[in-house]
Amino acid sequence: MLAPKPESNNETVKIMSIHSERPLSPHLMIYKPMLTMMISMMHRITGAILYFGALFLVWWLAAAAAGPEYFSLVHGYLTSWLGLLVLFGFTWALIHHLIGGLKHFLWDTGAGFERPMLEILAIFSALSSPALAVVVWAIAYLVR
């Protein structure tokens, strides 16, 4: 038993309270927000968004399997202006997570951790994902 007894010793109480209030990983509040950190967080956030976005994909597929009436109802929801806005958001999140994933494959090789490269990669993923989402939707509407 190495743990000190919580007696009236003030120093002991203080140490124990520091120990119990020690922030658990990842404790975001003590860091100054930085670009690389924000983009890293966006990878997890877009992943969580896409997790629930899978419901929309499967709902749409289930509607197609259910029959023409229900499919046209669901397809109508998803192609309303609100539905299209949500789908554009998912396209953005999907491409952001794709670019972030490719970045992780690069990091898995041990490359890309140097200072300027790290910032370039962060800026690239922040800017390329909305740009590519717009390009995808522009192509979709141009070739329709």
């Binding site: 197609a64 999907l94 995808v136």
Partner: peptide, 17 residues
């Protein structure tokens, strides 16, 4: 999935099926 989405855009429900 993205290419499929582009291809299906603007198609009729019968075309999508």
């Amino acid at each position: 999935l993205i290419i499929l989405g582009i291809y299906l855009t603007g198609q009729s429900n019968e075309g999508i099926m």
